[in-house]
Design a protein around this nucleic acid. Structure first.
Lengths: 142, 142
DNA sequence: TCATTACCAACCTTTCAAGTAGGTTAATAT
DNA sequence: ATATTAACCTACTTGAAAGGTTGGTAATGA
């Protein structure tokens, strides 16, 4: 499993907010209801997105969350990287200086790097806008 | 993490056996030493590969394991599917009839399917032979 | 018959995903 | 001012899975 529920939910939140961005700040409660996700759990996910500056929160009555930029400015990869720690397909490619002692002689490492690139290329070239209802469904269709 | 140590080790075993296939049956002990993997743990991984018929074991003195077919007949994907249960990038695509109630209306599902395809296409088009020392390193190089 | 080697079953330990629970601070409408 | 709304914060729980270990049994060749 490359992408956990956290990542999947994060994306769904982004799409939901994109589809309701004309309404100003949208309370978490509404998103949770529409998306059928527990408010409390969603809270912990949204916190990561706020910290990552891809959405901003406003407290108090009339408050809620909204996207800081427009939907086509967020790649799916960028969203997932905020919740997933790592999108690397194998442990060997995680972090920065993971030094596997076999690295230099490893027969499989280049192949894993290739897989990593294929995944990154895919996820970084789809935007949140591509996933909204208003979009006809472009690049990613099989 | 899409691929666990089990899958990575399995691949390294296959490559090791491919590179030593002229020597007839190769004992697990030798593979474990060369690959720096605990014998006991490797045992449990090899069991899966034998069950999957991609290598055969022979008991007793002079025994060990060898590939049942030639290295270019095994795709990386085929090997990994024997150890990994699922290569699906998200839970929604696992198993056969996973019925997420939101499936029909899901904004993200087609995108996940696309990701799954990209990964499958990559892993199914590299063979164990491509990963051996004798190979110049073809398709998968970045 | 003995060393070798594959095969088999059960258990352990640590980590992490996934989710709960309960409280605190800030903004706004009345 | 004060009640209400809603974001923000910290800590805990639970279950499953990854990543092993331990201790055996069965076949084979010298």
């Amino acid at each position: 499993m490359l992408i956990s529920t956290k990542g999947r939910y994060a994306l769904r939140v982004m799409i939901d907010l994109a589809e309701h961005r004309t309404e100003g700040y949208v309370p978490l409660k509404e998103v949770a209801e529409r998306q059928d996700i527990s408010e409390k759990y969603l809270e912990s996910i949204i916190k990561l997105l706020v910290k990552g500056k891809i959405l901003t929160g406003l407290r108090g009555k009339g408050g809620g969350y909204r996207l800081t930029k427009s939907p086509e400015e967020y790649s799916v990869g960028a969203v997932l990287r905020l919740t997933e720690e790592s999108l690397a397909p194998v442990a060997c490619l995680e972090g920065e200086s993971v030094s596997c002692p076999r690295m230099s002689e490893c027969r499989t490492l280049p192949m894993w790097r290739g897989l990593d690139k294929v995944i990154r290329d895919y996820l970084d070239n789809i935007t949140v806008a591509d996933l909204t209802a208003s979009d006809s469904g472009g690049n990613y269709v099989i």
